[in-house]
Amino acid sequence: MFSVNFGTKIHMGEDSLKRLEQFDKERIYIITDEFISKSEILSKVMALISSSNELLVFKDVIPDPPIDTIVAGIELAKDFRPTQVIAIGGGSAIDAAKGIIYFGQQSNNLMDASLICIPTTSGTGSEVTNFAIITDAENGTKYPLVTDDILPKEAILDTSLVINLPQSQTANTGIDVLTHAIEAMVSTKASDISDAFAEKAIKLVFDYLPRAYKDGTDKVAREKMHIASTLAGLAFNQASLGLNHGIAHAAGAKFHIAHGRLNGILLPYVIKFNSGISNSINQEVAEKYRYIASILDLNTASATIGTRSLVNEINKLLTTLGIPHSFSEYGLDKKLFDDNLSEIADSAVKDMTTKTNPIPVTPKDVARILIEAY
């Protein structure tokens, strides 16, 4: 038996931000980063909230939010005791808000707060998941936080907030969407329901990500990628992820490469490893990748050909998006790579997302993948 829970109410389409006008006499805690706080996005959001509400803004979120950020966010809200928390930004802002709410509940400071997410990137899908990543900066470790206690109550998908997203962010977050969807489809917890979300997300990425990358003002492409991100989030919230994210969490803490870009570098190598097409084919897993290739109308004459077609198509997409095909192409220092290889391999195997990889993995396997990807 398995259970399905879609606990997040999603507002989308033009004027979806007007949902904020419905708040009355609430204590609203806005969590964001310095960039958003200085942009028109925050002022646009705050202008829609009536003066009957009390507002408090925490703007100190940084990428890969560390424990110190979570503690500071809880401390600021200690006396305010919010009834609503609004996270505005990319995955880091949303993850920080989730961490602040979760650990704040443990200390009874944010007990009655509901979480509303307003994503300003099209990538993490965090606005509909019970996942968050918190960083221990001192030890260089990322910890997944997975609990329904952090599942957002509402998500507001307003395409106008991503129109001006730079090309590099469009590429990085977009390839993260693809990784989420592919990993959800081959996960050991995949189901027909999660597959339905993942399949549509994959198709949307290949159809619209190159358009959004080429022309950020393409409203159709931006809207489709915003929806794809949420669909992929819904998929992996049911099915979880796999080794690609396990390695990305471990390596990202050491190499400080943007999460989506790191996923993109790794994705072809992880697919080849999981399917076994480079040595001894794993027929069952390769058939899953073959099915994904069929969604994209690629050559699927056999499981091996289908998987290779998928890898080739992903590599073409990486080239289009200006994403490196290897760590050396990225410019990663070889000594830094070598010095951290063993620790990353051990951490990746222990990562929660690796548990649902389609085949079992050892640290030696991870090391081989990383060496090939260098």
Score class of each variant (00 low, 15 high):
residue 171 A to N: 07
residue 171 A to V: 04
residue 171 A to Y: 10
residue 171 A to H: 05
residue 172 N to F: 14
residue 172 N to P: 00
residue 173 T to P: 10
residue 173 T to L: 09
residue 174 G to P: 07
residue 174 G to W: 03
residue 174 G to F: 05
residue 175 I to V: 14
residue 175 I to H: 03
residue 175 I to Y: 02
residue 175 I to W: 01
residue 175 I to T: 00
residue 175 I to G: 02
residue 176 D to W: 03
residue 176 D to E: 02
residue 176 D to Y: 00
residue 176 D to G: 06
residue 177 V to L: 03
residue 178 L to D: 01
residue 178 L to G: 03
residue 178 L to M: 02
residue 178 L to F: 04
residue 178 L to N: 00
residue 179 T to A: 06
residue 179 T to P: 00
residue 179 T to W: 01
residue 180 H to Q: 11
residue 180 H to E: 09
residue 181 A to M: 05
residue 181 A to I: 05
residue 181 A to R: 03
residue 181 A to V: 06
residue 181 A to T: 01
residue 182 I to H: 08
residue 182 I to A: 10
residue 183 E to V: 04
residue 183 E to Y: 02
residue 183 E to S: 10
residue 183 E to K: 01
residue 184 A to K: 09
residue 185 M to D: 09
residue 185 M to T: 13
residue 186 V to R: 01
residue 187 S to Q: 03
residue 187 S to C: 06
residue 187 S to R: 01
residue 188 T to A: 10
residue 188 T to W: 02
residue 188 T to F: 01
residue 188 T to I: 04
residue 188 T to K: 15
residue 189 K to V: 00
residue 189 K to P: 02
residue 189 K to E: 13
residue 190 A to Q: 11
residue 190 A to S: 14
residue 191 S to E: 01
residue 191 S to L: 00
residue 191 S to D: 04
residue 191 S to T: 15
residue 192 D to T: 11
residue 193 I to C: 06
residue 193 I to V: 15
residue 194 S to A: 11
residue 194 S to W: 00
residue 195 D to L: 14
residue 195 D to F: 10
residue 196 A to C: 13
residue 197 F to V: 09
residue 197 F to E: 07
residue 198 A to D: 08
residue 198 A to I: 05
residue 198 A to Q: 08
residue 198 A to N: 08
residue 199 E to W: 12
residue 199 E to T: 12
residue 199 E to N: 14
residue 200 K to H: 13
residue 200 K to N: 15
residue 200 K to A: 10
residue 202 I to L: 10
residue 203 K to N: 11
residue 203 K to L: 13
residue 203 K to P: 06
residue 203 K to Y: 08
residue 204 L to F: 14
residue 204 L to I: 13
residue 204 L to E: 12
residue 205 V to C: 02
residue 205 V to R: 03
residue 205 V to Q: 07
residue 206 F to E: 09
residue 206 F to D: 10
residue 206 F to C: 08
residue 207 D to E: 15
residue 207 D to K: 15
residue 207 D to F: 09
residue 208 Y to M: 07
residue 208 Y to S: 13
residue 208 Y to C: 09
residue 208 Y to T: 11
residue 208 Y to F: 15
residue 208 Y to G: 07
residue 208 Y to N: 14
residue 209 L to K: 08
residue 209 L to N: 06
residue 209 L to R: 07
residue 210 P to K: 07
residue 210 P to V: 06
residue 210 P to R: 04
residue 211 R to H: 12
residue 211 R to F: 05
residue 211 R to Y: 11
residue 211 R to P: 03
residue 212 A to M: 12
residue 213 Y to Q: 07
residue 213 Y to T: 03
residue 213 Y to L: 07
residue 213 Y to P: 07
residue 214 K to H: 11
residue 214 K to T: 12
residue 214 K to S: 14
residue 215 D to V: 10
residue 215 D to L: 10
residue 216 G to R: 01
residue 217 T to K: 15
residue 217 T to F: 12
residue 217 T to E: 15
residue 217 T to C: 10
residue 218 D to I: 00
residue 218 D to N: 14
residue 218 D to H: 08
residue 218 D to E: 08
residue 219 K to L: 14
residue 219 K to H: 13
residue 219 K to Q: 14
residue 220 V to D: 12
residue 220 V to G: 00
residue 220 V to W: 01
residue 220 V to R: 11
residue 220 V to F: 12
residue 221 A to V: 09
residue 221 A to H: 10
residue 222 R to P: 12
residue 222 R to D: 11
residue 222 R to Y: 11
residue 223 E to T: 13
residue 223 E to N: 12
residue 223 E to Q: 12
residue 223 E to C: 02
residue 223 E to W: 04
